[in-house]
Design a protein around this nucleic acid. Structure first.
Lengths: 111, 111
DNA sequence: CTGGATTGCGCAATCA
DNA sequence: ATGATTGCGCAATCCA
């Protein structure tokens, strides 16, 4: 009682000398082609993404650099002012020394 | 005057039923395998690179954010001080208004 | 079960 | 001649 199918013996797979088989192969070959094209596209996009990120990155680095520089300058200015006036680093009632360090340390440690 | 070679007819290529041919195929198959492994590795590395850059990027963004914030705060402090003393924005002999804008504009325009 | 999508694999052409 | 790459088809397998 071999299972009776619509086809002859071993389905379309493996054997089936012609039409159905060929048809199936052809379709698969197309699928393979599509799949590979897609794959290559993705690879390309990934590489582009890398360059894009590199760009953004260097822009940000410069930004950080100039902001840090700026901040450093202001800090010195502050300290100079403070010592000139002997008001213990207080300016407008704020403890600048502490403030400046707070948001400078955490930013410089990664450079 | 058929060209005389060391082999029979069509070289080792295409035909040559055995040894030389098979040997060549086998070597190529290995080469293909090597090549494909290498290729996949490179793809993987590229993807890792993307994530790595994403990381660096967000770190930098935060850095810029906090530095900018800091700078904004100091700027206000400065301006307040200047107006309180009615010295035309001069502080320690420096024109802060101008200074602060110079290296702040170029840094905020991309946010 | 049906059928496209992926993937490993080998062949041959071509590059270096 | 030789290894590296690349397009291509086959078949197994995945996945929906």
């Amino acid at each position: 009682m071999p299972p009776k199918r619509g086809k002859s013996k071993k389905d379309i797979e493996s054997g089936e000398d012609s039409d159905e088989y060929r048809k199936k192969r052809d379709r698969n070959n197309l699928a393979v082609k599509r799949s590979r094209v897609k794959s290559k596209q993705k690879t390309q996009e990934t590489m582009s993404r890398v360059n894009q990120l590199r760009q953004e990155n260097s822009v940000l680095e410069e930004k950080v650099k100039s902001l840090t520089q700026e901040l450093g300058f202001l800090k010195e200015l502050f300290l100079a002012h403070a010592s000139n006036n002997g008001n213990q680093g207080k300016f407008e009632g704020v403890d600048l020394e502490k403030l400046l360090n707070d948001s400078t340390e955490s930013n410089n440690e990664n450079l």
